[in-house]
Design a protein around this nucleic acid. Structure first.
Lengths: 212, 212, 212, 212
DNA sequence: AATGAATGAGAGTTCATTCAT
DNA sequence: GATGAATGAACTCTCATTCAT
């Protein structure tokens, strides 16, 4: 293991520590994760950890920064080109649900929600880079569909938030509370289908425009 | 505080401990809350705590039982008698949203979600006494409205889950992530209104029955 | 005298406590036995224990007194009438070995030896009522046999101590160190036989008297 | 390099801890000795203790290993060359008795016997490295003497066990029960002399071979 | 730059003991 | 006389953190 110091730049080592710490924080939660176990998993000493991060809190923040950066990297494959509205939204719903139900993403959500009280900036930072980007992108999609007359005109942001919330109505919700194991693709497809159907019933362009 | 030993029965003392422990668990989380601090807050010794609860886990469970019992005690004022569907649902939506956004309830939710990974039975126990009862009651309401022709026929349970999820689409969601402070009644009324409007657009009895 | 009934009742309860405490001390050792578990086993409260015994130490002493008293009650069936020396000694050896290898007696011995350092008077009190009485009785038997010319003349006390030690040469010794489980009667008979044989070889009255 | 010094230092510290722990365990017994008091006596913190030994049990085992190793290091000065059987055995008896009556060895024996019930493997580990080696060596001596016609033929192992038991017939026995203080060399010489005399009377080669 | 060693503080838990009722 | 309730002290063990090397 003497290799690592010689061959790795400080930055690379830092990244390696963050990657390991991330896994452990997610597995055990902030409180239960110990600097000892992280150091052991990294393969270095605790003192080395402290050479890179001044405290457990700082390491945790770095891990969260890393996560949220990566969250931002998630790209929903463009659904703009699909002319069939129902197909386009179904595809979006499934993609979103699949993403946020992935075990590692679920763990992050639980961790962040659970620690939100003690790490006030954490929830915001994380949300901004995760859910918010999805909602904003979705909002753009909604606007376009409304402009094209494929959806009843309305505030596109609110419509996007509502659609997202409808997608989370069942399996996601139960998963968050630890009531079910990992959902199957069929479970997700079912929820996505119902969310889309209900949404389209409400946003049928044949109806009168939504009164603000 | 000399009062406590002399005047209080065992049961009262137990309740007092639970009340204090509840506050501390909510403030600090399960892991960070210490038996010492709870004992100090109660005004007794740690040994006394252990005379009432065999372990920290057991105390935590007792606190959860207490919370969920109280949850179960929440009664949604009957909306059955309101002939106007929109008014009835709006009333339900506001009541529900107000309840689950109350700071102490919010804290519980965050605590339970955060520990759900490590306390698998916790999430279930809590959910069963809290959200599930609401959903089931709501499901009954939906069935009746569908039977009365006030809502388009559909699986009433799924409709209830969907309605509940629509209610949580904005302020609740942001609150859970720690993105906003306590919402005003106006905030809640706004979300309730939009949820009801969207739901009624989708469940307008004039539309064809939902295809399963 | 007016207090007779009261004293009697109190005395009975005291005896009951001692009996229970004795079992627990033997099972768990002095240090590991707790007043709580003793009180629970007795069926009363800890405070009641303290009404009868001022401290754990005093309770332990009382238990020891009780044990040693009972030890003194052990009577070795008289071997005086057996004219055959070998048979008489074999009978004695087997009786002694069987007694001191009994699990409950073994436990006492281990307990007393183990705590001898911390309870200085304990070893003596116990020894005086247990082993010493056996040795003294055995010494009387030896004297008589020597006077009868059935054993070579010698200091009868030393002869008795030696005989007793020879009996303990194998199974008892291993049992004390926890190296073997409860010996069978055959094991004991074998050791007794060899001890007697060796003793009689050394104390054959045909040999010259032992030089002091 | 740095490794050597570090390892050496660590090893030394470990040895120092064991030495201190050994003293305290012997003085107070396993149960009564506390990690805090050991740490204080070592001059370090409890956490340091736990850096070297994962638990109290493990520390205790290490102490026992250390003791038994040292026990194994005890060499009985060779008695093979002494042509006079009585002198040779007397020398052996005195050496053995002196060894097992040494206060520190006595303390170990009491500790091990006392804990044998709760630490089943302890008695065996200790016995194998202590008493057993002595008995086996003694058994070899017996065999040689029997082959040379200096002792009456018999099972040499049983003869050795018997001889050892005869040596313990008085002062050792009383010491074990805490009935006497440290014996003088004269006390030991007296017991050794009588043990040898009785043994030789029984194992006089002029007698017929022992019947198995 | 990296680490082995060390530690004070504090975790959960249990104990022998006391005292008001 | 008996007890339910209470407690301070001590237990084993772990933690985040520091420092000499």
């Amino acid at each position: 293991m003497g290799v690592k110091a010689a061959n790795c730049s400080r930055d690379l080592r830092r990244k390696a520590i963050i990657a390991v710490a991330r896994r452990i924080f997610l597995e055990e939660g902030y409180g239960a994760a110990s600097m000892s176990s992280i150091a052991a998993a990294v393969g270095g000493s605790k003192a080395t950890l402290y050479a890179y991060f001044r405290s457990k809190t700082e390491l945790f923040s770095a891990v969260m920064d890393d996560m949220t950066e990566e969250m931002g990297a998630d790209k929903i494959l463009r659904a703009d080109d699909e002319p069939d509205t129902r197909l386009a939204l179904t595809w979006v719903a499934q993609t979103l649900l699949t993403l946020i139900c992935r075990p590692e993403v679920m763990d992050i959500q639980r961790l962040v929600i659970g620690e939100a009280g003690r790490f006030p900036e954490l929830g915001e930072a994380f949300f901004n880079r995760g859910p918010r980007t999805k909602i904003e992108w979705l909002s753009g999609l909604m606007r376009k569909m409304m402009e094209d007359g494929r959806l009843r005109p309305d505030d596109p942001l609110r419509a996007a938030e509502m659609f997202f919330s409808m997608c989370r109505y069942r399996v996601y919700h139960y998963l968050l509370w630890g009531l079910s194991q990992q959902p199957t693709p069929a479970d997700i497809a079912e929820d996505a289908a119902r969310a889309v159907r209900t949404f389209l019933d409400a946003y049928d362009p044949g109806l009168a425009p939504v009164r603000s």
